[in-house]
Write a protein that binds this DNA or RNA. Structure first.
Length: 319
DNA sequence: ATGGTTTTTACTGCGTC
DNA sequence: GACGCGGTAAAAACCAT
């Protein structure tokens, strides 16, 4: 396959401006000078742990295109020679009959020649199809990553995963959208900045069960090592959304650590635990946040918070 | 399909402002 | 009385087999 032709948007951008940004900005939240750093793929403030990246979420129009013409204009990927090989939907097919235009059968030599032509025609055709497929998938990944505020590195991982799936012939029978979403989900988890399936549901064009299935499939077939998400990974984002004070957030992290040591984790939903730790910490600290409030941003039920937070407090010996 | 586990939904009672 | 909280039972969702 002509790898050099499959130059993607992602790659081009990386070469010109590396994703590992080292500029030390000052935090828009707490105002501390030069405290903003990249941490585990998320841009946070070292001082107050605000997730800074949220502010640069791209809410602009998506670049995905819907008509053929539009696609031509917007497209930034794909073989440059497509115009030569391909002809705006007017492509001709090589007839399978071994006859000439007049209906006479061909000589053996001509027949072989035609066979070779068919083979090559088929190759170009399918390569082009894959190309379009990839193009669309990458567009989707980009769009969703923006909507979820996922950093550049995650998008790259996602596109790598997608490409591997494509090469492993995992696509047939599954939708592009579903696969793209699944790949991004996997990438986010691997990068330690997970988003819940529900969150993906809000930005994906396909239903949750579809991309969840695609994700499982890809993870299994490609042997992706995705450990169960650590509740700690959800903390910074929730804390930021709730406007938590540093002390409380810190406390929540400790509770989670104690809980983990006591084995409260296994089988429980990580977001639920993260939410519960925040509630517990806020109670312990005296600055109470209501269960309902936390439940809303974490998207878990209050009951779950109740159950988990009792377990957490027990594990921490605060009960 | 099945069974076990976890989460959610819905409802109830209690205390407080 | 509304609100936050805790508890419970039953339903639903999830997962491995």
């Amino acid at each position: 396959m002509s790898r050099p032709n499959l130059q993607t948007r992602d790659r081009q951008r990386t070469e010109t401006e590396p994703a590992e940004r080292t500029d030390r900005r000052s935090c828009p939240d707490c105002g501390a000078e030069g405290s903003v750093v990249e941490d585990g793929g998320e841009t946070v403030c070292r001082n107050c742990d605000a997730v800074v990246e949220e502010d640069v979420v791209d809410r602009g129009p998506e670049w995905r295109s819907f008509s053929h013409d539009e696609k031509r204009q917007k497209s930034r990927v794909g073989a440059p020679t497509t115009d030569m090989l391909h002809d705006r939907g007017l492509s001709s097919v090589i007839d399978w009959r071994d006859q000439d235009a007049g209906g006479r059968s061909l000589s053996t030599r001509k027949r072989q020649q035609m066979q070779r032509l068919r083979t090559w025609d088929e190759r170009f055709r399918s390569q082009d199809a894959q190309d379009r497929n990839l193009k669309q998938a990458l567009g989707e990944i980009d769009r969703m990553a923006s909507a979820l505020g996922l950093p550049e590195t995650v998008r790259e991982t996602a596109s790598v995963i997608y490409r591997r799936a494509l090469e492993a012939e995992l696509l047939p029978g599954r939708s592009i959208e579903g696969m793209a979403t699944g790949a991004l989900y996997a990438a986010a988890r691997q990068a330690g900045v997970p988003r819940t399936l529900d969150e993906f549901e809000t930005v994906s064009r396909v239903e949750q069960k579809e991309f969840a299935r695609a994700y499982r499939y890809v993870a299994r077939e490609l042997g992706l090592a995705v450990e169960p998400a650590d509740p700690l990974e959800y903390l910074p984002r929730l804390a930021s959304q709730l406007g938590l004070e540093e002390a409380v957030r810190q406390r929540a992290a400790e509770l989670l650590a104690d809980g983990k040591a006591a084995g409260v984790h296994s089988g429980k939903s990580p977001v639920g635990l993260a939410a519960a730790s925040i509630y517990a910490a806020s109670v312990l600290d005296g600055r109470k946040i209501t269960q309902g409030e936390i439940a809303a941003v974490a998207d878990v039920s209050e009951v779950t918070i109740r159950n988990r937070y009792r377990e957490l407090l027990k594990a921490a010996g605060e009960w």
